[in-house]
Design a protein around this nucleic acid. Structure first.
Lengths: 219, 219
DNA sequence: TATAATTAAAGATTCGATTATTTTTATAAT
DNA sequence: ATTATAAAAATAATCGAATCTTTAATTATA
């Protein structure tokens, strides 16, 4: 019998991080402890543990005797995040491709297949597919760098990806056909081990995404 | 009158992080809360807040219902950290050099001067200079990337640098003359804006450092 | 009216105690 | 002697209350 029991702290951590990334908690919003206490139904100590952990990742800002605040957003921050994502993800992609095996190719094809399905649904204006697309986009990009053989790199990339995702979700629009083509190219270049073209495609993919996001973001 | 009052939490955070980086708390060591309580003379709640924050940065590992542990070390981890430092620091250096101004040049020269002084003291076998060298080495490298114009990048680099430093301090030995030459080159290439050579020097500098560390590390 | 001082309310910080879980030790059964 | 079971000790997790700080509201003064 499996024991999947998570502590209260772990559950609240996931909830609050989700609420920040998905915009339920707004940028700059002050996180008053007694409000959160009733909202999430936990004690203050638990909340402070969770908020401190999120501080470490930079999703929350802490000011002594002033409390906790959801991290602010800005175009400058968005471009910084995008630049970091490009730097980390292209580097990881190169190593990943160099280390690839059949199992990885299979998993990558699988991840692509799911993403492509969600993309098609979105093209048919099935708006329910939005959250699915979000999930599969993340999984596809995680799979691309999975063989980079560096837990540290994967861990940092994950944080940066979530920060990037937060901006994407603030826009809510979907870049459509262009992005679909880029994902297909990313898959194909990875499978034939063309590192240069795979990296260039990834770089353009993120740059176009961030420009699109930026132009749709009123700040 | 300035208000430099830090909360208890902030102070303990710095102390514990210092103790991890500088090896007073050993890798894999279990951080029992009541022991830490008497050691640092604070309540459990405070400790849990601090340990959670350090989890976010990866200096501490948390296992549900098992407690907190100082992150383990390994050669693989060291090489991952070094690779990340190279990736992040060369990228930041390029942008920094492109954005440079006279003020930065002046500050960089100042930082180099202090580092060079510490290096000379070490050459004279003045072992007290060791901790000074640690400080000035960090400051010199931070100054190199200061103009990269990305708080996110600087913040992440800082965490990686501290993780790298932790390994360096485990070795305690000093690489000597070679490293001195590299620092001088790093300064000169940055000042004449030779980005390629500055990046290559930095890459070699870190690679040689990590190889030196690795070969002196019994794991 | 505008500014400064005082008080009241709200909120952050810290702590000690209670509860729940895990680990260790002791005891019993095979 | 070895494994299984039960009791005890150690430790982690959680909570609610006490303390301290900041912010807002009120009153007093120029």
């Amino acid at each position: 019998m499996e024991n999947i029991q998570l502590s209260v702290t772990e559950n609240i951590f996931k909830k609050i991080k989700y609420d920040i990334v998905f915009g339920n908690l707004e940028p700059d919003q002050k996180l008053k402890l007694n409000l959160l206490q009733t909202e999430y139904n936990v004690s203050i100590s638990i909340l402070r543990e969770v908020l401190n952990r999120l501080c470490g990742d930079g999703f929350i800002i802490y000011k002594v005797q002033k409390g906790f605040f959801v991290s602010p957003i800005s175009k400058k921050d968005l471009y910084e995040i995008a630049d970091l994502r490009i730097t980390l993800e292209t580097h990881a992609l190169e190593i990943s491709i160099k280390n690839k095996d059949y199992e990885w190719e299979a998993e990558l094809l699988g991840a692509y297949h799911k993403l492509n399905h969600a993309e098609n649904e979105l093209e048919k204006n099935n708006l329910n597919a939005k959250s699915l697309w979000t999930k599969y986009d993340a999984e596809f990009h995680q799979m691309l760098i999975k063989k980079c053989n560096s837990l540290n790199l994967i861990r940092i990339h994950e944080v940066i990806f979530d920060k990037y995702l937060r901006y994407q979700l603030l826009i809510l629009k979907y870049r459509g056909k262009e992005s679909i083509k880029e994902h297909k190219d990313l898959l194909d270049y990875s499978l034939i081990s063309n590192i240069q073209k795979a990296q260039n495609t990834l770089r353009d993919h993120i740059k176009k995404g961030v420009d699109y996001a930026s132009s749709n973001l009123s700040l």
